[in-house]
């Protein structure tokens, strides 16, 4: 069975792939944000409070994309 036949066999809603993609981006984004925060706190523990705020705004922006991406389930058939 060649690749074209396999691709032709895939059925179901192609939008499902989009929801998967909507999860990958924020996962990587939050991973980087949190990892860098840990790095920063390890270097300067006394700045933990300030770094927490920056981490929070970073997570907020990253998850905003995830929410919108996953919520497209409502409008795409």
């Amino acid at each position: 069975m060649d690749a074209t036949t396999v691709l032709a066999e895939i059925n179901g809603n192609i939008a499902t792939v989009g929801y998967g993609l909507a999860a990958i981006g924020p996962a990587i984004g939050v991973g980087i944000v949190v990892g860098k925060t840990i790095e920063g706190v390890a270097r300067q523990p006394e700045l933990a409070g300030r770094l927490q705020v920056l981490m929070w705004i970073g997570i907020a922006f990253t998850e905003a994309l995830a929410f919108i991406g996953i919520a497209t389930y409502f409008i795409f058939v």
């Binding site: 907020a60 919108i68 919520a71 409502f74």
Partner: peptide, 19 residues
């Protein structure tokens, strides 16, 4: 569901603006 989606997007953006 369309209104729900648009309200959700509006809420997310408003929340980011507040942040």
């Amino acid at each position: 569901t369309t209104v729900l989606f648009l309200s959700l997007v509006a809420g997310v953006i408003a929340s980011l603006v507040v942040d």
